[in-house]
């Protein structure tokens, strides 16, 4: 039986590899398909940033069950820190990523140590409060952050002295970052750390009974999640050349939550798909009607009621049902 289990595990692992390969192939194909439509490549680049952001929230909510209503706080934090550093320290993308992630780990560790001791609604409300505090800080320190106008005049990012200007190169960087983040998230999910998080999500008291330091494990999840959101922020500000307080607003946090719920909480692939679908739909639907948010709200309600597992969860359930119906498969079993 253990052998069967190992084989099942290999199948699951192969499924993840196939999923990564599909995303990589689709991502690599896109620049060729959009060669004469640069706007589409730009839109796809924004979708990739949104996907990294969605994955970051799933690393928290999907793994430990901690629901954040203010996840954009770390997205905006990353964007502002990287933006300020690029104007004062270095424009090298590697340096900016490393310095910003170090700052994020430090700050999210200090804040998270207080937050993760709260559960449920209290945690969610505190995360919302955190994002609004960060939003307010942009205006308090407007001489540094640019206030309502946002942080403008970000130097063009470089990599070992070479300027990164080509939209295709930017797209490749964003796709690579997403694939790396997703591969890392999948690896952690299967590692003892990921299993421990899932146990905590299921029942934190029982997890304590078998010796898990629940607060520490939640803090690790929070810091990793914040760092990934911050990475999305770094990439956004360097790609976009500017940032604004909107990145920290609770509406942005709501959008990230919608990516995750739409795709499927806890599925890792789902939120990535949810973010891409949302970003594309947002663009196209909003070009037809100003009331696009109403339609999205209705879709959100529908997904929560009809398919609580989101798009990915629903598709996976459908695939399982179809494969169970195949007569050959049953006979083989």
């Amino acid at each position: 039986m253990i052998a069967t289990t190992l084989s099942e595990r290999r199948v699951r692992s192969r499924g993840s590899l196939i999923g990564l390969a599909v995303i990589a192939a689709a991502g690599l194909f896109l620049p060729f398909a959009t060669a004469d439509q640069p706007f589409l490549l730009m839109l796809a680049s924004h979708a990739l940033i949104a996907a990294i952001l969605a994955l970051s929230l799933d690393m928290l909510t999907g793994n430990t069950g901690l629901l954040s209503f203010g996840h954009a706080a770390w997205y905006g934090f990353g964007a502002y820190v990287a933006g300020l550093l690029s104007k004062s320290v270095s424009s090298d993308i590697a340096v900016l990523v490393l310095l910003t992630l170090a700052a994020t780990l430090l700050v999210s560790g200090a804040i998270g140590a207080i937050l993760v001791r709260q559960v449920g609604k209290t945690f969610a409300i505190l995360t919302l409060a955190l994002s609004q505090i960060m939003f307010a800080l942009v205006f308090v320190f407007s001489d540094i952050t640019g206030g309502e106008d946002g942080l403008q005049g970000i130097p063009i990012a470089t990599f070992f002295g070479a300027q990164i200007v080509s939209p295709t190169v930017w797209y490749a960087i964003l796709l690579g970052a997403l694939l790396l983040a997703l591969a890392g998230a999948l690896h952690i999910r299967r590692a003892p750390l990921g299993r421990a998080w899932l146990a905590i999500r299921e029942n934190s008291e029982r997890a304590r009974f078998i010796g898990m330091n629940v607060a520490l494990l939640k803090l690790i999840s929070y810091m990793i999640s914040a760092s990934l959101a911050s990475l999305a922020g770094v990439l956004f500000v360097l790609f976009n050349g500017a940032t604004s307080p909107d990145l920290l607003h609770w509406l942005e946090s709501g959008k990230v939550l919608m990516y995750v719920v739409l795709g499927g909480v806890g599925t890792l692939f789902g939120p990535v798909i949810g973010a891409v679908v949302f970003t594309l739909a947002e663009h196209y639907v909003s070009s037809f009607t100003d009331a696009w948010l109403i339609y999205f709200g209705a879709l959100f309600v529908l997904i929560v009621i009809v398919a609580p597992g989101g798009l990915f969860g629903g598709a996976a359930r459908l695939a399982t049902r179809l494969s169970a119906r195949k007569p050959g498969r049953r006979a083989a079993q």
Partner: peptide
């Protein structure tokens, strides 16, 4: 109170 959404093996491994 098992870890309901984990498999039996995952419950044991964790």
């Amino acid at each position: 109170k098992v870890f309901a959404n984990l498999t039996v093996e995952e419950n044991l491994e964790v």
